[in-house]
Nucleic acid binder design. Structure first.
Ligand code: MN
Ligand code: MN
Ligand code: MN
Ligand code: MN
Lengths: 221, 221
DNA sequence: AAATATTTTTAGATTAGTCTAAAAATACTT
DNA sequence: AAGTATTTTTAGACTAATCTAAAAATATTT
């Protein structure tokens, strides 16, 4: 049986995302935290994934995805992001609503379905949160982007992505009128509280905390 | 926890479809056959559904859906048929490919999703196999239709539905150029082998076996 | 109305995924 | 280097869904 369960898929995707943020082997606890489950459950699952050669694993040393695990996770990310794009672009959902639904849709198995969906959407390269959508072969489009604190005082950028895509953060951005494509100019930085004054689309002035700035990616213009 | 598992949902839908074809309580074996599982498993599940008040059940007397079971099943049918319509109308799948994929998609839980999808598709009343799609309140559109054997010799009808929607039957219909919307005229019936000669869209002559005719629904014109 | 056949239920196992608590391994402090 | 804290693994138990085999109930035939 070379089949992969929904649960195994969710673990693979979580491990993939942890791998993106570190070169080190991923700790059991880190996975447990990401999956909101116990370390014991993670150990059980890791053993299973290891037996299926989807992760490299040595006791007490953490895990990395194998090539086959990586390509499976990439396919899940592709599905997740294409469905998110569908929900926003075709069904008029807003960007903070789609993650949860895509979390389910990503497990629909048909490759033909996802390739057709990709075409139907016009082969988008980025999802509603600005994250890259791997193509049918698993290749990601790389984009030169910097986080807002890296943008020089006086310089301008276009908001192209967010680091954090939790509901609460995205809803907060909605309130601030910060959507993807928005033009942001750095007016002034205040050392006192590490806040930043920006101008949105050339008109609206706004003060952002450093926490918010760290979660915004812009393309310079 | 008033949650319904994917498995429970599949049972509810199967029972719903058996109920459509008979007023009698549905036998354990009938469900087992529909679900391709053992009678023992069905008994277990029936007890569970009964405890949740989704079916009426008495030992050895078979089951019927309760109102709440019925509305749950109707919602599943709605989702199934809307997704099938999406796959055919928007992603260019053909009618024999979509059942299997919709079998998965129907379990995606968001009501908002399905209502948006319904609007996106233009609130279709029938799915790619001619089956009615219940609206958001669970109401089916009724259509006056007859099976091909009921259509008089010399009379004409438009193909609006199929009884059997297995892959093999639908592929066979493809070969015969019989798609929904096709005009069918009964030319002659042969008692010898119960076959029927028809004309398709006013040009192509064709002999159909009774087995095929019984699975075709037409609207008279 | 018995005898036989069929259907349905129960009993007991199995597998996937989860949990808590305890044991073992590793890392950090003093 | 020893002691303490943290992380990870193991042990054992639980639930949902499944199975086979046997028992019980119902239906059919003689
Ligand atoms: Mn998921
Ligand atoms: Mn996203
Ligand atoms: Mn299903
Ligand atoms: Mn259908």
């Amino acid at each position: 049986m070379n089949t992969t369960s929904r649960t195994e898929e969710n673990y693979l995707k979580a491990i993939f995302q942890l791998c993106e943020r570190s070169e080190e082997p991923i700790a059991t606890n880190a996975i447990a935290h990401a999956m909101k489950t116990s370390a014991a459950s993670v150990t059980d699952m890791i053993k299973k994934l290891s037996k299926k050669e989807l992760v490299h694993y040595q006791k007490h040393k953490g895990v990395r995805l194998t090539d086959s695990g990586n390509s499976m996770a990439t396919s899940l990310v592709r599905k997740h992001r294409l469905w998110e794009t569908f929900l926003v672009n075709k069904l008029n959902f807003s960007w903070e609503e789609v993650h949860e639904i895509a979390e389910e849709l990503e497990h629909i198995p048909s490759k033909k379905l996802i390739d057709r969906l990709d075409d139907f959407l016009g082969n988008p390269k980025f999802d509603p949160h600005g994250d890259p959508i791997p193509d049918s072969a698993g290749n990601f489009t790389f984009r030169k982007q910097i986080s807002l604190p890296e943008l020089a005082e006086g310089a301008e950028g276009v908001l192209v992505g967010v680091q954090d895509d939790t509901m609460t953060f995205l809803q907060y951005l909605n309130k601030l009128n910060l959507t993807l494509g928005t033009k942001i100019k750095i007016v002034e930085r205040f050392d006192y509280d590490e806040s930043t004054k920006i101008v949105i689309n050339g008109k609206q002035e706004q003060i952002l905390t450093n926490k918010v700035c760290l979660n915004l990616f812009v393309k310079t213009i």
